[in-house]
Amino acid sequence: MLFNIISISLGAILINNFIFSQFLGCCPFLGCSNKTDTAFGMGVAVIFVMGMASAICWLIDTYILVPLGLAFLETLAFILIIAALVQLVEMFLKKSVPSLYSALGIYLPLITTNCAVLGVVLLNVQNHYNFIESVVYGITGGIGFLLAIVLFASVRERVQFADYPECFEGFPICLVSAALVALAFMGFSGMQIF
């Protein structure tokens, strides 16, 4: 069990990083990585929502959808759960933890359309993870996202001062530097726990 959890976490954070090897969550990754602190805020919000979404979607899938033979409604149910969850988290934080809300508030609505969140719940179902494994996968997937986006944001801050061809202005140079960071992450691809 413990072995399984360690291997899932290591896989989700480094080896099969959500962004650099599975391409899940690229839109917010490229959109929110201008500054290191916004990147950090976004990353933390994603960890939070991914963990919660994994837990709730697993429960709903296992105890409601599958027993009723409604597995074909998974995608529809999951996206609605995620949207509702994001709203709830937003309202809850606003009322009870205003300091956290002011830090994460602006990122929360963006997360609904983050494909890493829907991706993680769908992968949980596809990989037949149990409850604990799902939650661990959700949270560590989020940590992988945080790691990727913070690292990339600091790379991007440097790239601003670099001298690159004019036509690479904006997105292209950003993608090219992301490619180089992805190359670095490929170094983890041989890692394995025996």
């Binding site: 291997s7 896989g11 080896i15 090897s21 691809s189 394995q192």
Partner: peptide, 11 residues
Amino acid sequence: VETTFSGAQGS
């Protein structure tokens, strides 16, 4: 036998 194990990039 159907078996699942970890390869280089996941199971």
